[in-house]
Design a binder for these strands. Structure first.
Length: 502
DNA sequence: ATCGATTTAAACATAG
DNA sequence: ACTATGTTTAAATCGA
């Protein structure tokens, strides 16, 4: 399977989207454009949480955005962040702007090309026969191009499957099912792809096995989840796939590599040359500090840089108005501590899981830095006496605490316990010093507060997707459960869906 | 031509 | 015994 990361294909995918959005009528509204975007993107993942998420994303009303958020606990949640930035930059999506930039002409011209490319696509597909790579000049639709190998690596497929599951963990069998459902190509693909999936799970350091509890009836084998340390890598890899909605949205925000603008004081201004990016890069506008970090040739950042990264991520995620991601996706105290420790002690400090190399915030241009099978050059040093999760996430350790001593007003993690105030910030140092009982109490408060917040916002839960377990009362519960599980590894949050399916 | 990432195939072990 | 799952090795393929 090929993972095309070429700029040209990504640009093409977006251009064809944009072409559809900018037909004859130059006054076509943003809403219409978004609707078209939705239609186009939803084709890729129909019926899934993602397609619901896409619908949610393209909703015009902020209120509607708040009501239903199937993205909340999936990898696709990241889409929302940039989407909101994009919506903020209305000018970026307005046709007037496109016309101003003389891009409509190209797009209109491209409309004809689009028609031709569809014809060419059919030709390619018929010529290539089954089991061929998807042509890079055609937006990929897994349900239409059933003879094309999906332009996603197995890692990305597994990642999407796991992220699309309520509990963020799946047995191999359900990973198969997800892939089969969302990529019918595999229904008639040569056998062996399941072997590849298993091979990937075993060898790819991004995935880790969660030993099931006694009495857990999921059949043979274990559940597989995403290693939180490597989740950003997978996200980054996913972003780089040319036909992923994320990619297309990012392209929308940065229409061409040579014309990049940002909104300042109500008007569009060109990006400084130093910060202009390619379509596969991290937008300095959307992720200014990550971009800054990326642009540096050394990893020797000062505290402010690191704090900026953490702060930017948390605040960006806070933009979504969604509290359910506070555990899994935000830059938590654990994340921050890892960053600090990595900086202080170097990469080799961390206890490694299997062949894991420690990774924090990832913004890479090199696929090898996204996720690899390769054994890291940094071996388990010092040797971990154990690979237990408890140790791996022992962010309340002495080192962590001492390292956090100098960390004051900027040390915060989001805690949604204020109904009208949104997220309240609590010091990391406070968090790390909490006893287990206090943490339980703290989490209870968080859940209550978050529930109140969600109720106030008219949050609509999606029981079929996110509330499969009787223990879970909301999305927030789910993520909090995950956090708790990561800490204790002794709770059983297997969803009834998983149980039933197996 | 080379290298690394990824895919594919296969052998083998283990658990249910 | 059988099958699904998991690990490992090796070779092939692909793109940079």
């Amino acid at each position: 399977m090929q993972l095309s990361t070429t700029t040209a294909t990504g640009t093409l995918a977006v251009n064809s989207l944009s072409m559809k959005s900018s037909t004859k009528n130059q006054d076509e509204s943003d809403a219409s454009m978004r609707q078209r975007l939705l239609t186009s993107l939803s084709q890729s993942f129909p019926g899934s949480a993602l397609s619901k998420a896409l619908h949610c994303m393209t909703s015009d009303s902020e209120d509607e955005d708040m009501k239903s958020d199937p993205l909340s606990s999936s990898c696709f949640a990241e889409l929302r962040l940039e989407k909101e930035e994009i919506e903020e930059d209305d000018d970026l999506t307005s046709l007037a702007w496109l016309q101003d930039r003389d891009l409509l002409k190209n797009m209109n011209a491209g409309e004809d090309d689009n028609g031709r490319s569809e014809q060419k696509e059919n030709d390619d597909l018929s010529r290539g026969g089954p089991y061929t790579a998807h042509p890079t000049n055609v937006p990929y639709n897994p349900h239409k191009h059933v003879n094309s190998k999906p332009p996603y690596s197995f890692s990305c497929l597994i990642f999407m499957a796991i992220e699309d599951s309520p509990m963020k963990k799946l047995p191999v069998k359900d990973i198969y099912s997800w892939i089969l459902t969302h990529f019918p190509y595999f229904q008639h693909a040569p056998t062996g792809w399941k072997n590849s999936v298993r091979h990937n799970l075993s060898l790819n350091k991004c995935f880790k096995k969660v030993e099931k509890e006694r009495g857990q009836c999921i059949g043979k084998g274990s559940l597989w989840c995403i290693d939180p340390d490597y989740r950003p890598n997978l996200l980054q890899a996913l972003r780089k796939t040319p036909y992923h909605p994320y990619h297309q949205l990012q392209m929308l925000a940065t229409p061409t590599s040579s014309h990049q603008y940002y909104l300042q004081a109500g008007s569009l201004k060109p990006m400084p040359l130093s910060t202009r990016i390619g379509p596969n890069s991290v937008s300095p506008h959307l992720f200014p500090f990550l971009s800054k970090r990326l642009s540096q040739s050394t990893y020797d950042f000062d505290d402010n840089d690191i704090k900026d990264v953490a702060q930017t991520l948390v605040s960006l995620k806070g933009l979504s108005g969604n509290s359910s991601r506070l555990s899994n996706n935000t830059c938590s105290s654990a994340d921050y501590t890892r960053m600090k420790l990595k900086r202080k002690y170097g990469s080799a400090f961390y206890p490694l899981y299997r062949r894991h190399a420690p990774v924090d915030m990832v913004c890479t241009s090199n696929p090898s830095e996204d996720h690899t099978y390769s054994a890291t050059t940094i071996e388990d040093f010092p040797p971990s006496p154990s690979s237990s999760i408890d140790e791996e996430y022992d962010f309340g350790s002495e080192e962590a605490e001492s390292d956090l001593e100098s960390f004051h007003s900027d040390d915060w993690v989001s805690e949604c316990d204020e109904v009208d105030g949104g997220e309240q910030l609590v010091p990391v140092s406070k968090m790390s010093k909490l006893s287990r009982e206090d943490e339980a109490e703290e989490q209870k408060k968080i859940v209550e507060g978050a529930d109140a917040l969600l109720n106030l916002a008219g949050f609509m839960r999606s029981p079929a997707v996110f509330n499969p377990s009787p223990q879970s009362t909301s999305n927030v519960d789910i993520d909090l459960n995950i956090v708790k599980e990561e800490e204790t590894q002794d709770s059983d949050h297997t969803s009834s869906r998983i149980t039933d399916k197996s």
